[in-house]
């Protein structure tokens, strides 16, 4: 049995026990979606539904944010997290958005995910993945029609290319063998390339990106660092950013959002993944991430529960040249 399938078994058994003994009232995980290339967030509250839970390289969504929807429930909620998603759990804990005692973290060491578009291009949409495996070289997906192999270089999902932690940094149940962090190289290559451009070119680059923003707010809604009860962009009075869709307002939206999550963005890559018009939002957030690292010498936010967000904590060694 592949490691992925062992994890899936383990996940279903763990979920079954948690629901059976009443320890959890809900398990948030992944289930098959409307097509072979799609997996959906699933909300399982009955034992007889746990076999809907799947673990395969298409389990892309960061499920941590759904915890906010259930924070006032009386029972405990269990949630499936990958390495990147687990940083979001720490984000929510540090921001006092969720209570540690009320969350059961089902950690899955994730070897990397596959670009669903490539799966959709090769597999029959109605097929069902029965077995999945990931090796250092490739992804392999088995359906009723055979086994399909994708080379890792070509098929690895963009947000996984600079993966920092395959294994969750926090978990109550670790459902698979720990995967040591690999050296992803320099995650800031693209940021540095852009930084080196003259200011006019940098400005033109972002103007082109922001001008096609639809202001659908998918980036905000999916973001585990965006937890305000009333978002500044939804306020009518005072109106900080107008509803009008144009370059100045769109730019204001993106820059304000980037600064609001500065030092709190866990670099999960979901904002960029969900953007319907492919705005490279990770590049924007990573610029701030890079500055934070340069200024405060801190790990990526959410890496450790003890490491407080540098802009949310005070130490005597903080740089104070602006004072």
């Amino acid at each position: 049995m592949s490691e992925l399938m062992k994890i899936q078994e383990n996940l279903r058994e763990t979920a079954r026990k948690l629901l059976a003994n009443g320890e959890a009232s809900l398990v948030i995980g992944y289930a098959l979606g409307s097509e072979v290339s799609r997996v959906v967030p699933a909300f399982i509250s009955r034992e007889d539904e746990v076999d809907r839970l799947v673990w395969n390289p298409l389990c892309i969504n960061n499920l941590a944010k759904y915890l906010l929807d259930y924070r006032h429930e009386p029972g405990k909620v269990a949630v499936v997290v990958k390495g990147c998603d687990s940083r979001a759990i720490i984000r929510l804990l540090q921001d006092n958005q969720i209570t540690r005692e009320k969350v059961i973290i089902l950690g899955i060491p994730c070897p990397g995910l596959i670009n669903p578009d490539l799966v959709a291009a090769r597999l029959d949409p109605g097929a069902q993945i029965t077995v999945a495996a990931v090796s250092k070289q490739d992804f392999s997906l088995q359906t009723g029609e055979g086994t399909f192999t994708f080379t890792r270089d070509e098929a690895l999902l963009k947000k996984c290319r600079d993966c920092e932690q395959h294994t969750p940094v926090i978990a109550d149940f670790m459902l698979g063998e720990e995967i040591p962090p690999n050296d992803p190289g320099d995650p800031f290559v693209a940021v540095k390339t852009l930084e080196e451009l003259p200011v006019e070119e940098r400005s033109a680059y972002w103007d082109k990106q922001f001008s096609r923003c639809l202001r659908c707010y998918a980036c905000r809604n999916v973001c585990p660092a965006c937890t305000c009860r009333e978002c500044v962009f939804d306020q009518a009075e005072p109106c900080w950013v107008a509803k009008a869709n144009n370059l100045p307002e769109n730019t204001a939206f993106h820059l304000i959002r980037a600064f609001h999550v500065a030092g709190r963005c866990v670099d999960c890559g979901e904002c960029e993944r969900v953007c319907p018009v492919n705005i490279p939002l990770s590049l924007l957030n990573r610029k701030i991430l890079k500055d934070m690292k340069d200024l405060f010498n801190v790990p990526t936010p959410g890496t450790s529960l003890e490491e407080l967000p540098p802009l949310g904590a005070f130490t005597k060694s903080d740089p104070d040249e602006f004072m």
């Binding site: 959906v40 967030p41 699933a42 909300f43 759904y66 929807d69 639809l214 202001r215 659908c216 707010y217 998918a218 905000r220 809604n221 999916v222 969900v274 319907p276």
Partner: peptide, 11 residues
């Protein structure tokens, strides 16, 4: 339950 409440679909 899984809807993010974003405006992608409508826009």
């Amino acid at each position: 339950r899984r809807c993010l409440g974003c405006g992608i679909c409508t826009y």
